[in-house]
Design a binder for these strands. Structure first.
Lengths: 227, 227
DNA sequence: TCAAAAGTGTTGAAACTACACCCATGA
DNA sequence: TCATGGGTGTAGTTTCAACACTTTTGA
């Protein structure tokens, strides 16, 4: 029995919201193949490293943020077409991460320059490898998960308002949501958010109540997309 | 830059319904490691083989069924803990398959004996490698997908009755469902099923209308689990 | 004629949408 | 004071679970 050798990598789809836009973390490749092309951050898994640990490590390297700060990380899917990497047969395990607004990313070892790129822009250019496919899959997963999970709070800082959460839904889904009904839906979903008792003023208008993320992971009932 | 070598395998969680029980395809391992233990079917990916092609190949080898016969195949998740295979560092991409009642499986090359095992039984024994975890994840995925996808038809032969579909839901979810409301829900979900015009008699009672799978993949509206 | 399964009608409760309306703040 | 955003009330509609009831078969 033989074991054909493969290289195993992790790739990251890291979403955040900056300047009222859904953004994804990208790098410009500094080495061949695809030198100079925009790609998702990622790298090879070390010989004794768990897959998720490798994803955490890459995330920390690219963003300079310690894991599980305000970051949610989950496995997305695995991509292993025979010719996806021209150097060697590579299987890549893609991970999906959601972060509150992070500081400007730090360029890592194999990244010439890491930066946040609006998703709308990233979808229009051809990324290196099969990263355009991975990005599309990640976006679809994120959109779907908003419906039935408390994911939206992962995009927010530790304290946030209902309007902040609504903003996440509106930007990720790309639709307008009635603020009044949304407000009630969020409060009706047990364990989604917990009031802190504080009030925060956004400048104009009545100050909003501050909330923190609740213990729930799944939403009951879910928050439905229009369709 | 070096590429640490990994072995890449696919493992299969193949569900079917036999004798009114949800069953999973298992093998008894004929070689070390875990010789004699029950495991999920699987094997190493060939050097120039796509991941899904490898899964299709293993499925055909173990069940003797040509792919896409009445079979649905989708990627489940990837498992790569450093010590999951004592022989060599292995990353396994698990696939989930749903099949109509298939003939008794054929033992393949690396399988001492393949057989259908009730899921309730498979969950109670400790499978080889991390296959107990994979099976649990696959079951949870299958349960969740019934809610919002037309997956249930993949468990049925080309022609079926509404009661057949209901049986799938009841067995996979392990709950009783009101036949009358279920009937209407299925017909209300556009593209879920299409009438063939035939009537089939099950023995007792009024004959049921026959249906075939419709073009839809997603259910609108979904069929809710009781919570 | 009875049991069993398919299928239809109906009713009351719950959830959701749309929007009127009040509250609290900055300018 | 007005504009702006936070938050509550409510009416009309839709959805849905529960179950009475009819239909069509095998025994």
């Amino acid at each position: 029995m033989t074991f054909p050798p493969f290289a195993v990598a992790v790739d990251l789809v890291v979403f955040t919201i900056r300047n009222d836009e859904l953004c994804v973390l990208t790098i410009k490749r500094g080495e061949a193949p695809y030198k100079g092309r925009v790609a998702l951050p990622g790298g090879f898994v070390l010989p004794n490293e768990d897959l998720e640990a490798a994803a955490q490590r890459e995330l920390a390297e690219e963003t300079g943020v310690g894991a599980s700060h305000d970051t949610h990380l989950e496995q997305l899917a695995t991509y292993g077409a025979p010719k996806r990497d021209p150097r060697i047969r590579t299987v890549s395990v893609a991970y999906l991460a959601f972060a509150a607004d992070l500081p400007e990313p730090v360029a890592g070892t194999d990244a010439a320059s890491a930066k946040w790129m609006p998703v709308s822009e990233a979808l229009e250019i051809k990324l290196a490898f099969d990263h355009s496919t991975i990005l599309k899959d990640g976006l679809e997963r994120a959109r779907a998960k908003l419906e039935y999970s408390t994911l939206a709070t992962a995009f927010c800082p530790a304290e946030f308002t209902i309007a902040d959460i609504r903003n996440v839904y509106e930007l990720v889904w790309g639709i307008a949501i009635d603020p009044r009904n949304f407000h009630r839906k969020v409060l009706a979903s047990v364990g989604f958010v917990e009031p802190t008792g504080e009030l925060v003023s956004q400048g104009r208008g009545r100050p909003a109540q501050a909330f923190r993320a609740g213990p729930a992971v799944q939403l009951h009932p879910p928050i439905a997309r229009g369709t």
